[in-house]
Nucleic acid binder design. Structure first.
Lengths: 176, 176
DNA sequence: GCAAACTATTCCATGTTAGAATACCGGGCG
DNA sequence: CGCCCGGTATTCTAACATGGAATAGTTTGC
């Protein structure tokens, strides 16, 4: 699991409610939902569904619709449930800037959609970012060229921003 | 030119000095050079060279080596020169976080390698980031859901970090 | 009853990617 | 002298991602 894919996020959406591709696509395009977080094309989303089904995390079932063409409605399997909760409880989330922006926000969104507590998720993310910040600050102090130094300073600065932002997350989620 | 590729950076390296693929690869892997900025595999780099040659920006010339297999040494064409300087003087550089981290740092590295002034480059990047920050802050104030609001707050926070970091860039480059 | 718009999914050509495979050379070693 | 090894330099391959067009069914407006 190296690349950054919406797979687990799809599992989360399906855990909240069985859906078909087109509905999921809407979640990923509506800016009030995940549209600001992910930017998925049609084929990408249907690719994810195909992959998840192949891996046995979800089960598709062709259903006739009263209004429109037939659709394939997907449901979580037990394996999918397990994978989803492993993802939500990830002890050491990635602290790459992009991943925080995408994965962490997705986790938060899914946890809230499932009415699960979010404080542990935020806390683990904060810890991971703090560790990474320290690691990079140490590397920064040993940089051997100005470009290396500037690059590391950039990432440290970004992580400081993330940490500050995580604080506002905590505040907002506490006052809910 | 939508995706984020090292094409222009390669042009810059070749402008400083004619090189073959393996040497370029070294620049992109040595952490004291561009190794912290880009993470390129062999085939990626050779793909870039093939593309640039197909587009007429560079010219390859097979050379026998005294120590090792023959190599293809690349030189900038006039078109390549033009493209490079358009890239260096880009009036409205992207302010996506990832692009700043990668493209802007590459511009800086190349400008310094070519002994060109850097202050205009930094200034244009700062202006672009400021504009984008204001645009996103305005969108943030109109967010219609908590996830949308958090996402926009994240990016605004990151851009604030970028702006602070650009200041330290200016200081460091001035004291040179 | 026909066109247009919406719902839903698949297909296709192109490009990207990691990593294996190839190939060439000089030097050390038995 | 023959051979293998490690560094140099590039190409190949198979798998996967991507955007956008194509398909196809259904309702709605006129």
């Amino acid at each position: 699991m190296s690349a950054i894919t919406p797979d687990e996020t799809v599992l989360g959406l399906l855990a909240a409610q069985a859906r078909h591709g087109y509905q999921l696509l809407d979640c990923f395009q509506d800016p009030r939902k995940l549209g600001r977080v992910w930017k998925l094309s049609t084929s990408q989303l249907y690719n994810v569904l195909k992959r998840l089904e192949r891996e046995g995390a979800i089960v598709g079932c062709e259903v006739a619709s009263e209004s429109g063409p037939p659709r394939t409605e997907y449901t979580l399997s037990a394996a999918g449930q397990a994978r989803l909760s492993a993802w939500l409880n990830e002890p050491n989330p990635s602290s790459s800037i992009r991943r925080v922006r995408v994965e962490f926000l997705s986790r938060l969104f899914i946890a809230r959609a499932l009415a699960l507590p979010t404080s542990a998720i935020v806390h683990r993310q904060r810890e991971a970012c703090l560790r990474e910040r320290e690691r990079l600050a140490a590397e920064h102090s040993m940089a051997q060229s100005s470009i290396e130094s500037l690059t590391l300073a950039f990432v440290v600065e970004q992580l400081d921003g993330v940490l500050r932002w995580l604080s506002t997350c905590e505040t907002l989620l506490a006052s809910n």
